[in-house]
Design a protein around this nucleic acid. Structure first.
Lengths: 121, 121
DNA sequence: ACAAGTTGTTCACGCCTGTTTCACGCGCGG
DNA sequence: CCGCGCGTGAAACAGGCGTGAACAACTTGT
């Protein structure tokens, strides 16, 4: 890889999360996360479409590279693995939000998930 | 993703509300709302005819895809659910207005509950 | 090649959310 | 004051999703 390719390196910033796909690495407030290959890949694909709802079919296709079979819960399982590690690394933050019947959405939010209740005082 | 496909996407703007039917998502001042399938669908159909009075029969037909049966209060129930979540996300705004005997109308208005209402105990 | 640890996949149980329906009471309009 | 439309809470039901664990596949060290 040349210096030109280096300058193109993708850097995904999601709140206190920094994801470097080309380095196979994600950092939480600077500290490297210990993610497996699939976990990181899922986080990357979620982060590339941050704040957008991604269906299980889309995520499976992006991460596993093939079509999701009916009844396959792989995405759910890896979403959980990610949630556990992210919660462990950044307590008080909520990143992966479930949209019932649709899929998941990545967005950095404080644990108070009372969607839109602000004290403007 | 081409620019052509992107330009076809429906975007409904209702005051501080942004509704993206193709993404199954609605935002309040940029923040994603947590709406169920039916709630979102109802909001979409209301927003597509914003500022127009929609009868329960019309709304039910658009959202549920079949004819409203006599005595069915489903539309009322979901209007309430939407009102609660919208009020929670955007305090001080009133979006769904009741037209007695006719139906509902979606329009962004500041909540002006100071017009002559007092508690006489 | 074998053992041990790690990662990936599948399964089943049950909670929790969403949907439908019902009932009660208030309010609007006549 | 009366009647019906509407607001509202909650029960009942269904199924999507969270979760732990067993099992398989892969990696690493000796």
């Amino acid at each position: 890889m040349s210096a030109a390719a280096e300058s193109q390196r993708e850097v995904l910033q999601v709140g206190p999360l920094t994801i470097l796909p080309d380095e196979n690495l994600a950092r939480a407030s600077g500290r490297a996360l210990m993610l497996s290959s699939r976990e990181l890949r899922l986080l990357i694909e979620l982060a590339r479409r941050a704040d957008r709802i991604m269906s299980r079919e889309q995520l499976y296709s992006l991460v596993w590279g093939r079509e999701l079979r009916a009844g396959d819960r792989s995405v759910d399982v890896y979403v959980r693995k990610l949630r556990v590690k992210l919660e462990s690394a950044l307590p008080g933050w909520c990143f992966i939000h479930t949209h019932f019947g649709f899929g998941y959405r990545l967005a950095p939010e404080p644990s108070q998930h009372d969607n839109g209740r602000f004290t403007t005082d």
